[in-house]
Simulated assay, not measured.
Amino acid sequence: MGEWFTKEIADTGRLRLFCFLVAFIAAFLFIRFSVRMIRRQVRWWPGNVTPGGQHVHHVVFGLVFMCVGGVGGLAITDGSSGWAAAAAALFGAGAALVLDEFALVLHLEDVYWSEQGRLSVEVVFITVALCGLLLLGLRPLGVDDVVEEGGSSGGGLWNVAFVLLFDLCVSVVALLKGKIWTGLIGLFVGVLALVGAIRLARPDSLWARHRYPAGSRKERRARIRERRYRRPIERLGNAVGDLVAGRPSTKD
């Protein structure tokens, strides 16, 4: 195990990313456990931080951790040192605390346990997935592979520019069609973004609102596909999210 870690993580320059991701996941699981204990009013668990009666949300602590970890990481020149790993871990823990209250920050109101609060859990899951892909050695838009191929031919620069632009465009189209997972993962696996860009948009997406007139054939097909395929996937995703993060309240 130690040999694998050294070869695949430390020697490839991914130590800080590894520490960031581990701390991110650990901090998210801890804070979700904490808020669930507070929600149940468990006596043996410390309650909210309320100095002078003011409830301090954990996003505040997350911002402090991110500032300290981020500035510390910039100040450390040796990216393979223990201090660099510690700074990355602190930044990851802070990012988890911030993104866990992403919906609260977005709406500027406490929607943590509402249906709107599910957005925070989804953002956290997306972040874990993207960092996991980076840790596996994948790069957005396949930059490393494309640059290597382009450098070996005379017209390589234009080939690189075309491939990167094409991959970026199809990912953006997929995102505009409301396919967040497909568009973001497609930045790493281009074929997913291409499929998402070709297929029908989700009915409430920006693309559908501007290109699928109400009552049109495409609009009807999009809503049928949403009910038939997307809704079951959403219910499964919500079930997993509720298992990890807790079920939202029936009332906001």
Rank of each mutant, 00 (worst) to 15 (best):
L97G: 00
A86E: 05
F125P: 00
L29Y: 11
G2N: 03
I9S: 09
Q41R: 13
S249C: 08
C67K: 14
V56P: 04
W158A: 15
G154T: 02
H55Q: 12
T50N: 15
V105Q: 07
G53K: 12
F18V: 03
R202L: 14
A88H: 05
W113M: 01
V143C: 04
I233R: 11
G150E: 02
L138T: 01
A222N: 04
A86F: 10
I9F: 07
G82N: 11
G82M: 08
S81C: 05
L74N: 12
R211E: 07
G196E: 06
V160L: 06
A75E: 13
A197P: 01
E149T: 00
V22F: 07
F30C: 05
D100C: 00
F188S: 00
A86W: 12
V60R: 05
E148L: 12
A27V: 04
M66H: 09
I76V: 15
M66D: 11
A84K: 04
P248I: 01
R40H: 12
F162I: 05
H57Y: 04
T77Y: 08
F188Q: 05
F33T: 00
L141F: 15
A197Y: 02
V98W: 06
K179H: 11
G79C: 05
F65E: 14
R230M: 08
F18G: 04
V163T: 15
L99W: 07
L134K: 08
T50A: 14
N159A: 05
A201Y: 09
G70V: 06
I224N: 11
T50F: 07
L21T: 04
L200D: 05
I180H: 10
A88N: 10
L176H: 09
Q41D: 12
T127D: 03
L243P: 02
L29H: 04
M37C: 13
D204P: 02
Q54F: 14
A161R: 11
N48R: 15
G52D: 07
P203C: 02
I180G: 12
C67F: 15
